[in-house]
């Protein structure tokens, strides 16, 4: 009884913490919301004259989602494949080492990913981007000229992808390993090839795990501050040009860059952007939940 009470209490405590964070955000963002538009751009000098709060936040939301989407599109398939490789393809001894290394990589601070992105990745990316803009430039998103150095949203997306890859991999691998041995052996006994076994036994079993792993990765990609701040030349327009510099910016990086020198209403505006980021993740999670719930619940055996 005490045990179940403690468990329930912990759950309620989490709700309380979350409520406290949300209330704090709202209270601190309120001055920015309640100030009329013309007064806002007058007292916060980095808001263009005549722009409302939403005009300012819009491009930031766009940039945040774009960077996170690029990262997710690149990272998820690779991460699932790597997780399958480690759990079902690699020799068992090697698999343990790989698993260990992946766990380790999940812990590298984002500052280091930023350093690596700026110092190592950037020079490697330039020829690729130049090639893309030259031969695929007719596709609007690849329109050139490719920026030199390539401090663009695509680079940021790739760095984010590398960053969330270990997280998605680690969680999905753990889930894949939990596939009941009976399911797998049954599939193999029926004459399935290894790939068919994975498709019929492992993937359906791990689906909700994969989605929550991807959400975990997305959460980190959406809120990532330092790595983005270090590899992206920010801009504030709705722009799909992922090879050009100074087009998009991510909310968290914007807060980090502006916060130290801000005061008064500027801080309130930045906290409002934090609130918006919060709302985005809420939306994303709701969508993910909906996707999961369309499938039958798959908890334990039976």
């Amino acid at each position: 009884m005490i045990f179940s009470g403690a468990a329930k209490g912990a759950g309620v405590l989490i709700l309380a913490i979350l409520a406290a964070v949300a209330i704090f955000l709202l209270v601190n963002a309120w001055p920015a919301i309640s100030t009329p538009t013309d007064e806002l751009s007058e007292s916060v000098h980095w808001i263009k004259e005549g722009d409302s709060l939403l005009d300012y936040v819009g491009p930031l939301v766009f940039g945040t989602v774009l960077a996170a989407l690029i990262a997710l599109i690149i990272a998820t398939p690779v991460a699932i494949a790597v997780a399958l490789f480690i759990s079902h393809y690699a020799p068992r001894k090697l698999a343990q080492i790989f698993g260990y290394v992946i766990d380790l990589l999940a812990a590298i601070p984002s500052v280091v990913y930023g350093l690596w992105g700026a110092l190592w990745l950037m020079p490697q990316m330039f020829p690729v981007f130049e090639w893309l803009s030259e031969y695929l430039g007719f596709i609007p998103i690849f329109q050139g000229p490719a920026a030199s150095p390539p401090r663009t949203i695509l680079t940021a997306g790739i760095v984010l992808a590398v960053m969330i890859l270990p997280i998605i991999t680690a969680v999905s691998r753990e889930v894949f390993l939990q596939t009941p041995t009976l399911h797998r052996e049954a599939a193999l006994a029926l004459g399935a090839t290894r790939w068919e076994m994975i498709r019929m036994a492992v993937l359906p079993f791990g689906r909700s795990g994969i989605i929550s792993a991807a959400m975990l990765g997305l959460g980190r990609a959406l809120g990532e501050t330092m790595a983005v701040a270090m590899v992206l030349s920010p801009g504030f327009v709705y722009s799909f040009f992922i090879l050009q510099a100074g087009q998009q910016q991510n909310i968290a990086a914007n807060i980090a860059l502006k916060f130290p020198e801000s005061s008064g209403l500027g801080v309130n505006v930045l906290i409002f952007t934090g609130l918006v980021l919060f709302a985005i993740t809420l939306l994303v999670n709701m969508i993910a939940r909906w996707i999961v719930s369309r499938r039958a619940e798959f908890s334990g055996a039976n």
Partner: peptide
Amino acid sequence: EYGPKSKLGRGITFFVDVMTGIPSIVAGLF
């Protein structure tokens, strides 16, 4: 174990998901 189907349980699951989205800088401010 206790409340997978209860209202509170579903509420907590949902808000924990929301909580994963708290940007680190906001956690610092909080």
